[in-house]
Design a protein around this nucleic acid. Structure first.
Lengths: 135, 135
DNA sequence: GACGATGTATTAGTAGACTAGTACACTATT
DNA sequence: AATAGTGTACTAGTCTACTAATACATCGTC
């Protein structure tokens, strides 16, 4: 190939996942996998809207949410680009996500018959042996 | 106290978390923390509905979901109880499930930018001050 | 079997999530 | 300044998650 293929989106109508969320996930996955580099332009709001036959506002919602997270930079009249800044989430949001994660963890542990103490003991091992990964 | 205080629910109206889900989480957290033992009766659908000023069906939805998961046993006309089936696992299987749960937890925490220490600190609060709510 | 406790089914109202229609605003290029 | 690209605001429609109102079914006890 003479040049890298442009980033494109795909929709799975049967997944039940909201369109705007599918877009968000694909951008983040693209970044994580290296397909999208910092500063790179992603398809325009209108282009995506036409290709996927959806409303520009649906694309906008995805892009805006990613911009709020610091993943994208949007420039009106020009386009939308992968941000080059490192993501810095505010403390409140960080705390909220942590609380949610822990809540779900404890709940699932309860179902499995585990005690919180067991979980903590196992977690402690993770600190002393940080390189171990089972999955 | 002559006898252990009965298990009670609390609602956080500002959390944005659905009522039925708050009930589910509190039951599961109660089991994980040891406040709820196998065979123990939890407040009746009607009692909870009256206490929290919500509809019996909202409580029912929570209890039913927990019953489907095998967490609760409901007996019409009698009451709802913590299931005793979940407790009998052989040690190896128990350990394997624990490891898997912790692995997934740590992996998701890593993606979210949390440290294991943060997780443990938050978990510790669940044990020592279970009724405390920051939001 | 009557009663009072329990859980349950049916139906419907409400709020919010999600998306679209449409018109507007900004930017770069000419 | 004209134009064609870009992102954006405003409004509204639709669907569904969530909860409630109300009446019904089951169980234990007397």
């Amino acid at each position: 190939m003479t040049r890298t293929a442009p980033f494109t989106f795909r929709l799975d109508a049967r997944s039940g996942v909201p369109v705007y969320r599918q877009l968000i996930d694909q951008v983040q996955a693209g970044i994580a996998s290296g397909k999208l580099a910092s500063g790179e332009q992603i398809p325009t709001v209108r282009q995506v809207a036409v290709d996927l036959e959806i409303n520009p506002n649906t694309v906008l919602r995805a892009y805006r949410e990613l911009e709020i997270r610091g993943v994208l930079d949007t420039q009106q009249g020009t386009g939308t680009f992968i941000s080059d800044r490192k993501v810095t989430q505010d403390d409140a949001e960080h705390d909220r996500q942590l609380e949610q994660l822990v809540s779900e963890f404890v709940a699932r542990a309860g179902v499995g018959g585990f005690t919180v103490k067991e979980l903590m003991d196992r977690l402690r091992e993770r600190i002393t042996e940080p390189e171990k990964r089972t999955k």
